[in-house]
């Protein structure tokens, strides 16, 4: 039974498709075109340079290669360092919250709260807390005789700080997704395991973890994407330092495009970063698939 005219489906789709063409398809193509030019939108001349912007990224002596690959390195280090924590810590939180106890709703809300504050509030707050000289964290550690740590000025502490702040900020978000996954695991599976004499740990290994697999894949993917997009924390807390060690790829792209007004180069960088990300995503998918079978 068909209760609609030929044009109806297209009419329903039209508003979205208009946006989609204008802000997704168009820009994706236009971005490629830009990346073949030396594009400064305020200068009349936008010389066509062919693949030069891409070649430059692989020429160690070019002006863009070093910042870009340093940015890739910073993003890479941050991603590798943060994703395991952002996948594991929330799982722990979710297991904790999955138990029935008085005030559970309250604590769940508290653990999620940092996420709604947004990166700006969090960045400002931790920039101060982590200050080497007058930050409360160093003062607190000093009580235990730990000497001043340059959380924002020394490596590897700057990365430790950025990862920790990101965990503080987003662990609640991932935990909530896990929590929903946990509630989808049938209680009978636990009961059966218990009858078999499985310990709490064995139940976790053999019931909880397999039951959470789809949710975990989802979390790994969104966390990977979020980490690869890291920007605000580094901008506000370490200002990309010490040196340029925490200047992430996205910071390099925006700096190239919006501060140096080399938008063609910036577009080339973003395509290359996207390709790298796609490769990583494929590898991750492949790994998870294999583990499944």
């Amino acid at each position: 039974m068909r209760g609609y005219g030929r044009a109806t489906p297209y009419l329903f789709l039209a508003p979205y498709l208009a946006l989609f063409l204008l802000f997704v398809v168009g820009p994706a193509v236009f971005g490629l075109w830009m990346s073949l030019h030396d594009w400064d939108f305020q200068l009349p001349g936008k010389p066509f340079v062919g693949l030069q912007n891409y070649k430059d990224l692989f020429d160690p002596l070019s002006a863009t290669a070093e910042p870009f690959w340093h940015g890739m390195r910073a993003t890479g280090i941050f991603t590798v360092a943060s994703v395991p924590f952002l996948v594991a810590v929330p799982l722990g939180l979710a297991v904790l919250l999955n138990r029935k106890f008085p005030g559970r709703t309250f604590f769940r809300a508290v653990y999620f709260a940092p996420y709604v504050l947004g990166v700006a509030v969090i960045g400002l707050m931790f920039r101060y807390i982590l200050d080497t000289t007058f930050g409360i964290l160093n003062a607190f550690l000093g009580v235990f005789g730990i000497s001043e740590i340059g959380w924002t000025t020394e490596q590897p502490w700057a990365f430790v700080a950025l990862v920790a702040v990101t965990v503080w900020w987003t662990a609640g978000f991932n935990a909530i997704i896990y929590l929903a996954g946990l509630q989808d695991i049938p209680a009978e599976q636990y009961e059966a395991a218990e009858l078999d004499g499985a310990s709490t740990w064995q139940q976790f290994r053999h019931v909880t973890l397999p039951g959470l697999r789809p949710v975990t894949v989802f979390i790994v993917v969104i966390t990977l994407l979020a980490s690869a997009n890291m920007f605000g924390q580094a901008l506000l807390i370490t200002q990309g330092g010490p040196g340029d060690t925490t200047t992430t790829a996205l910071m390099v792209i925006t700096d190239t495009g919006f501060s140096q007004f080399r938008m063609g180069q910036a577009a080339a960088m973003s395509y290359l970063l996207a390709i790298c990300l796609a490769i990583v995503a494929l590898v991750v998918f492949r790994l998870m698939k294999e583990r499944k079978s």
Binding site: F23, I253, G257, L273
Partner: peptide, 12 residues
């Protein structure tokens, strides 16, 4: 990823 659209959408 969203950053691909950053420059072109900005010009848009």
């Amino acid at each position: 990823p969203g950053f691909v659209f950053l420059m072109p959408n900005y010009l848009l």
